[in-house]
Design a protein around this nucleic acid. Structure first.
Lengths: 339, 339
DNA sequence: CTGTTAGCGCATTCAT
DNA sequence: ATGAATGCGCTAACAG
C-alpha cells in the first residue's frame, strides 16, 4: 500500500505538506497541490483509515450488535433492519460494523466494540426488560439510539423509535370485535421482550371497551417465528374451540397461525379470522395470503441512523422519541360465524 | 477510556510490562501478572482496537460491500446473507464491516475499505459479467471469496460458492415436462447477472432433451423481485395463451408469477403450473403457498466466512469452488390440462 | 508556503 | 523479570 511517505519521497515534499495538500488546506500553493494530487492519484494512494482513526479519535463507523442466534426469534426483522441501517449509514458517510454476540457473554461484544473505540455510535435493537446493554451504553456515554422502548414499568430515557404496538394490537382486536367476534385469542411474543406488555395492554383495552371478558386461557405465547405462531395457535384452537378469531403479534407468527388453522381443517378468513400486527401495520389475513403485512423496516433503520448521526455531531434531535402509528389494512372482512 | 498507561501508573509497572502481563507472556512473574490483571479488570480496561490494528496491521474484520439500492433486486438475499455472515464471522473471531456503495462510484467503497486497510478479507456477492470488483480485489491481492461464479464465458478463477442454477432450472423444467407440459415459459433474471446464462442453459437443455422447440417468445426477464415476476408473467401469459406452465428463477419472482396467474382469473397448480428455483431448491408452487422454497442462505454465508478465514490464515482450502446441488421439492403435482 | 516535532495506544524489539 | 525506545500512518501545533 502506498503511504504519505511514498508520495513525499516521489514528489520531494515533506509528509506534512503532502498530507495538507491532499486534505485541501489553504496554505499549500496551488501548483504544489495539483502536483501532489496528481502523483497521489497516479500512485493509487488510499489513506490508511486505521491510522486516521487512531489519530483523530473518530471512526466514522456506527456499530450494531446482533443478539446470539437463539432460534427464538425471527431474524427477518434484524436482517432487514441491518440492510436499512447499512444503506442509511453509507448515505451519511458512515460504515457499519456488525458484531454478533457469542452466546457466552452477552456484554462482551459491546465492551469490545464500544470500549475498543471501534465505533462512534451504536444502534441497539429489540429491547428487553431491564436491559443491561442500555445501562452499559449510558454509563460509557457513547451516542446510541434504540429501536424499541423500554417496558411500560421502566423509564425510556433514551432516544428511540418504536411502533405503537399497544395501539396496533388494540386496532387489530377492535376490528375483530366490530366484525362481531366475541371469542378472540391472541398469540403474544415472549414475556421478556419489552414490547410484549404493550401488546397485551392493547388487547385488554379493546376487550374492556367492548365489555368482553379477558380470559387468560385465550392468551398464548409464541417465539416470534412462524413455527411459534403455529404451535401457539394449534394449542389455542384445540383447547378453546369457541374461538372465532386470533390476533398475531407479528407477521411470521400470523402465517404460522394460518397454517395451524388450515391444519385443523378450518379455513382462514371463513371459519377463523386472523389479524396481525407487525411494525406499523395491522392487517386481516386471508387465503391465499400472497402479500404479507410487513412494512419496510429499512425506513426505520434509516431514521435511526439519522438520529444517531445527529447525536454524534452534537446536533439537537427534533424528535428524540418516536412512536409510529399503526395503519389498518383490511383486505377481506371475515365476520363471526352465526352460531 | 482507561489505557495501558493508566494501569501502568496505578500498578507502578511500566507500560511494557502491563502489556505483556495482559497478553499472558511467559516472561512476567506470576505474582505481578495476577496483580496487573486484577487492576486491569477492576479499572475496566478494554484494549483500544484501533491502536492494535495500526500496530499489528490486522483488523480481525471482514468486509462486505452491498450494492447500491437500485430497486432492481430483492434484498432478501442480501439481508439474509448478511446475517449469516455476521454470525459466522463472530463465531470465527471476526467482526463484519458493512459498507454500501453510494450510487456514484461503484469502486470507491471497495477502495476505501480495502485500500484503507479496514479489513483482512472481503466477501463479494452477486457477480456480474466482467465484474470490475473481482478484478480489483485480485489486483490488490487481498483475500476474498465470492458468492456466485463468473458467467459461463469468463474464467471463475477465484474461490466461490454458487448454486448449480443450470441444474436447478433444468430440474424444474424437466419436472414440468414429465408432468405433460409442452408449452413452458420462463422468467429469467436480468442479463448482466452472471448466473442468468446458466439458468437459460438449464431451461434450453431440458427442452432439447424432450425434443421441444425453444421459443424466444416464451422467455421473459424480471428484476428478481416479486413485482418483476408479476409483470413478466403477466406479459407472458397474455401474449402466449398456450402456456400451461412457468418456471421462475427465484422465490420472489415465483410469488409474483402466482399473483399474475391469479389476476388473470387462472388458478395456480390447476390451470398454470408454477415452479421456481432459488438458491438450492426447486419447488412446485401451489395455492395457498404458505411455504416458500428459499433455503437458508445463512448457511452459505457461514461457509463463505469459513473459506475466507482459511485464506486469511493461509491455510489451504479443501474445496475452493463449490457448486450446490439443487433439491427438488414437489408439493403438489399439476399435470398439463387436456386440451 | 513549507518542514520539524510530537503523539494517538499499542506491541515489540533491545537492553539491562 | 522488567523498562526504555521505536514505529505502525497519520494529522496538527508550532516554527520558520
Amino acid at each position: 500500500m502506498v503511504k504519505l511517505k511514498d508520495i513525499a519521497e516521489t514528489t520531494g515534499y515533506s509528509i506534512t505538506t503532502v498530507s495538507r495538500a491532499l486534505a485541501g488546506y489553504k496554505d499549500v500553493s496551488e501548483a504544489t497541490r495539483r502536483h501532489i494530487v496528481d502523483i497521489a492519484l497516479s500512485m493509487g494512494y488510499q489513506p490508511n483509515a486505521v491510522a486516521r482513526q487512531l489519530r483523530s479519535q473518530k471512526t466514522d463507523t456506527i456499530g450494531i450488535i446482533i443478539p446470539a442466534h437463539d432460534s427464538r426469534f425471527s431474524d427477518d426483522f434484524f436482517s432487514e433492519l441491518l440492510m436499512g441501517i447499512g444503506y442509511a449509514a453509507a448515505h451519511n458517510g458512515y460504515d457499519l460494523l456488525v458484531s454478533a454476540q457469542t452466546s457466552s457473554d452477552e456484554m462482551s461484544a459491546y465492551q469490545r466494540i464500544v470500549g475498543g473505540n471501534r465505533v462512534d455510535g451504536v444502534i441497539l435493537a429489540r429491547t428487553r426488560r431491564s436491559d443491561p446493554r442500555i445501562a452499559y451504553l449510558k454509563e460509557v456515554g457513547i451516542p446510541f439510539v434504540v429501536s424499541g422502548r423500554a417496558a411500560p414499568d421502566e423509564p425510556s430515557d433514551f432516544p428511540y423509535i418504536d411502533a405503537d404496538s399497544q395501539q396496533g394490537i388494540y386496532a387489530a382486536t377492535r376490528h375483530l370485535i366490530q366484525l362481531g367476534h366475541r371469542n378472540i385469542g391472541i398469540v403474544l411474543p415472549p414475556l421478556d421482550i419489552a414490547f410484549t406488555p404493550y401488546r397485551l395492554m392493547g388487547y385488554q383495552r379493546a376487550l374492556l371497551e367492548a365489555n368482553l371478558p379477558y380470559e387468560q386461557a385465550n392468551v398464548t405465547y409464541g417465539d416470534l417465528r412462524r413455527f411459534g405462531g403455529q404451535q401457539a395457535a394449534h394449542a389455542l384452537l384445540t383447547q378453546r374451540p369457541q374461538l372465532t378469531a386470533i390476533v398475531a403479534c407479528n407477521d411470521a407468527m400470523a402465517l404460522g397461525v394460518m397454517q395451524a388453522v388450515e391444519s385443523l381443517g378450518l379455513r382462514v378468513g371463513a371459519d377463523i379470522a386472523v389479524t396481525g400486527f407487525d411494525d406499523i401495520s395491522v392487517a386481516e389475513y386471508a387465503t391465499p395470503p400472497l402479500t404479507t403485512v410487513r412494512q419496510p423496516i429499512q425506513e426505520i433503520g434509516q431514521r435511526l441512523v439519522e438520529m444517531l448521526v445527529h447525536i454524534i455531531h452534537r446536533q439537537p434531535l427534533e424528535h428524540p422519541q418516536t412512536l409510529l402509528s399503526p395503519t389498518l389494512i383490511v383486505r377481506q372482512s371475515c365476520g363471526a360465524k352465526q352460531s
